[in-house]
Design a protein around this nucleic acid. Structure first.
Lengths: 342, 342
DNA sequence: TTGAAAGCGCTAACAC
DNA sequence: GTGTTAGCGCTTTCAA
């Protein structure tokens, strides 16, 4: 068993005096094989230390049991949760995950998509890079009938299925909550409107203002990449404003957090001077003081849903053609950062 | 190009009236191929929409260009950083990453290792599960000369290379720092001593006490799985103690954090009543109040080092046989949680 | 319920 | 510098 020689189905066949075909079938529980034969095959396989050769199998069957995953960045709480969710489903269903990150660059996203394509993945799970507009680099998959599922950061095309939360509603509810707390000048820290998630959150924000008869002010909306630096910059910007906002809705938690820390450091009181809400429910929301109001965003479930649907489709049980969009629940979690004293 | 028919090297060969072998060689820049021929091959490949078939190639060459990764959990800051580091190196070198998580269970770790083995990974990167003692499930890899590299959570065997930080030194220095702050009764929140990382941190702690002529008290050492709950439990435990500790060295940040929050909530003052230090430098260390003293632990670099060394070995440039252990720099970062007022 | 034969697309070995 | 030949290990007809 610890030798160099690899055991093949031929060895098993010879051992049992049956044909390789039967062995092949027996190994994958083909229904037409006699129970007894099947058992013998399994035993001999174990005894001889057989392991199946996935390449030979893939070469012949044109299936790889591999799913490609392309994400902007691996090391965020949301993304690692999503991937953990995918892994749990994939592992259970006998699929492998090949993972790569675009580092928020379309160029790298395209390169990664090509690698995945060349690696003949059975399907693809994608969360788009910050600045991806065209999704032609996934057309090759569509042409070859390789299913592509977008999660979180999707685009509007009908060619691809997507797993999302209702970002519009979440943006709307967060803004409405701030209004209910008495905010009159609500600032929005948003991301690029090229990305559905940020565009929708912004639209929800606008709608809530409109319903409250508050005019939309372009100067109260900052678009950035929503990272630590963006949050700090936003704080600096606010501190210089003549008419400061009394509420902030940030499109992610990192921006909300670092903006809040910047404002606090300058002596502003949260939430009395400025109420703040973020988006994602990163763990640090419950650590920072005051705790950060945010939208709870089910990363793990989203990963599970994305992988589950893709695999379901690959196994023929579900059909991506009919289901085009799955919207997961999200919820506003109100914490001290936005709760003005009564 | 959008047809079903896959282009093979035979199609290219026919197109150019040369042999498939030449095409194969030309495609991978084999030195003995004429520059002109090579160029023509590349052009035709592009024109015809050729994509290499990795299975056929792997089947023949017995190389997969795939690296397996087994980690306890994907969704921690340290681990996602490490994986991001691996991905960056692997991608650059033309390797794919297959990733799976053991969820801290040996049983699942064994299953994952077998899957990796069956998938014929060229090499394996592993961080062991919480309770893994025996590493026989990696012996199969050794037997087949498939290199295995442990990172962070390693074991002592000489069969495997490992990438680590000096946990003993880090534990020693952290404890020493607490002693220098005037702590006399330092509690240690540790993990299982089966795991090198926790055992070494604990040994460092003991050594520092010894040098300060402070007796080691078993009752001041709590062993747990070091998660959020463990931290909370530790806080409860401490609050019930008659002689409370005046310093805490936790073997990870999560335990330190939630213990600190628990103590704070009960009215204890950090660091004056109890000084606290964690381990890992998770981002929240700089968010919580007071900021948490900790050991900075280079996840991304560790991932890069692990993947880099493995790939270097696979490409024949480095030799895992000679290098057996790589120790990366780590450093104590002193923050407010342990800095008693002078 | 089982088997024989062919071939998936590539590359290693050996020739020229 | 290029070509011929053979075969990696499996699955898929088709036949029995």
């Amino acid at each position: 068993m610890s030798n160099d020689k690899e055991i093949t189905i031929y060895d098993i066949a010879k051992h049992l005096n049956i044909s390789p075909t039967t062995v092949s079938r027996g190994l994958k529980d083909h229904p037409t094989i006699n129970k007894n034969t099947r058992k013998k095959i399994a035993e001999t396989a174990k005894e001889l230390g057989y392991r199946s050769n996935t390449f030979a199998s893939s070469l012949r069957s044109k299936r790889t049991n591999t799913i490609g995953v392309i994400v902007p960045r691996l090391n965020s709480y949301f993304m690692s949760s999503a991937i953990a969710g995918m892994e749990s489903v994939a592992n259970e269903e006998g699929y492998n995950l090949i993972i790569s990150q675009s580092l928020e660059s379309v160029k790298k996203e395209i390169a990664n998509a090509n690698t995945m394509f060349n690696n003949r993945v059975d399907g693809l799970l994608v969360s788009l890079a910050y600045d991806t507009v065209e999704t032609d680099h996934f057309k090759t998959f569509v042409d070859k009938k390789i299913p592509v599922v977008f999660f979180d950061r999707a685009n509007e095309s009908d060619d691809f299925m997507s797993i999302l939360i209702d970002n519009y509603k979440a943006g709307y509810e967060t803004t409405k909550h701030l209004l209910e707390q008495g905010c009159k000048r609500i600032m929005h820290l948003g991301g690029t409107r090229v990305r559905n998630v940020y565009a929708d959150r912004w639209k929800g924000y606008k709608q809530a203002l409109k319903e409250a008869n508050i005019g939309y002010e372009e100067s109260l909306v900052l678009v950035s990449s929503l990272n630590e630096q963006s949050g700090k910059d936003a704080a600096k910007h606010i501190l210089k404003m003549h008419k400061k906002p009394d509420g902030i809705f940030a499109a992610n938690d990192a921006a909300a957090l670092y903006c809040m820390l910047g404002l606090k450091a300058a002596g502003l009181h949260i939430p009395d001077d400025v109420a703040i809400a973020g988006f994602n429910n990163d763990p640090f929301c419950q650590i920072v003081e005051p705790n950060l109001t945010t939208i709870n965003y089910p990363g793990y479930d989203m990963g599970k849903a994305a992988a589950g649907n893709l695999i379901g489709h690959l196994n023929g049980s579900s059909n991506l053609g009919t289901t085009n969009k799955i919207v997961l629940r999200s919820e506003l979690i109100i914490r001290a950062s936005s709760l003005k004293k009564v």
